[in-house]
Amino acid sequence: MQFLCSQAGYRLVQFLEFSIKNEDTNEMLFQLKRPEIPLNWEDIDPAEEGRTVNYKFPISFLQAKNIGTTLTFAVGPKELSSFRMIERHYFRDRLLKSFDFTFGFCIPNTVNTWEHIYEVPALDEKTKKEMVLSPGQTVSDSFYFVDNKLVLHNKASYSYC
């Protein structure tokens, strides 16, 4: 797997919690929480940080019209100016949706929570069926920028069952 930058960005920001829920039904679809907040940023080994996630969602995820996400992250000893994430979702190399989220300025040594509700792209039933029958062929790239410089690049794959 190829990434567009090193893992050094993990010395700037640590992702602590992430959840996804169907806003229309209030069904929690995914939830992940790190066991602890890093206390000493110098002890973080970026090479030990995961850069890929394999999501397994219920098929009901594909019926959702509105998804809510909550992200909790810790900022290290340096401020994050113009913190931004661009995320692109693909199925078999076809762009399904692109998201552009601006977190803005983040104060050093803080824990922040960011919530966003967005519309899920409309997919035809044939595509949804193919996505269910093709685990791992729905993928995403998440690009994180500070001051317009790419500092992190993560990848995810999706399966629906």
Results as ranks from 00 to 15, higher is better:
Cys5Pro: 04
Ala8Glu: 14
Ala8Gly: 03
Val13His: 00
Glu17Thr: 15
Asp24Phe: 02
Asp24Cys: 12
Asn26His: 13
Met28Pro: 12
Leu29Trp: 02
Leu29Val: 02
Phe30Met: 02
Leu32Arg: 14
Ile37Arg: 04
Leu39Arg: 09
Leu39Gly: 13
Leu39Pro: 00
Asn40Ala: 05
Asn40Arg: 06
Asp45Ala: 04
Asp45Phe: 03
Asp45Arg: 05
Gly50Met: 06
Arg51Gln: 11
Arg51Asp: 06
Tyr55Ser: 04
Phe57Pro: 00
Phe57His: 04
Pro58Trp: 05
Pro58His: 06
Ile59His: 05
Ile59Ser: 09
Gln63Ile: 05
Lys65Pro: 03
Asn66His: 14
Asn66Ala: 11
Thr70Ala: 11
Lys78Ile: 12
Lys78Tyr: 10
Leu80Pro: 00
Ser82His: 12
Ser82Val: 08
Met85His: 02
Phe91Ile: 06
Arg92Asp: 07
Arg92Phe: 01
Arg92Ser: 06
Asp93Thr: 07
Arg94Glu: 12
Arg94Trp: 09
Lys97Phe: 12
Asp100Phe: 03
Thr102Asp: 11
Phe105Trp: 10
Cys106Ser: 09
Pro108His: 06
Thr110Gln: 05
Thr110Ser: 13
His116Lys: 10
Ile117Met: 11
Val120Phe: 10
Val120Trp: 04
Pro121Met: 11
Leu123Val: 05
Leu123Ile: 09
Lys129Trp: 06
Leu133Ser: 11
Ser134Asp: 03
Pro135Thr: 10
Gln137Glu: 14
Ser142Gly: 09
Lys149Ile: 10
Val151Trp: 07
Val151Gly: 01
Asn154Phe: 02
Tyr158Arg: 04
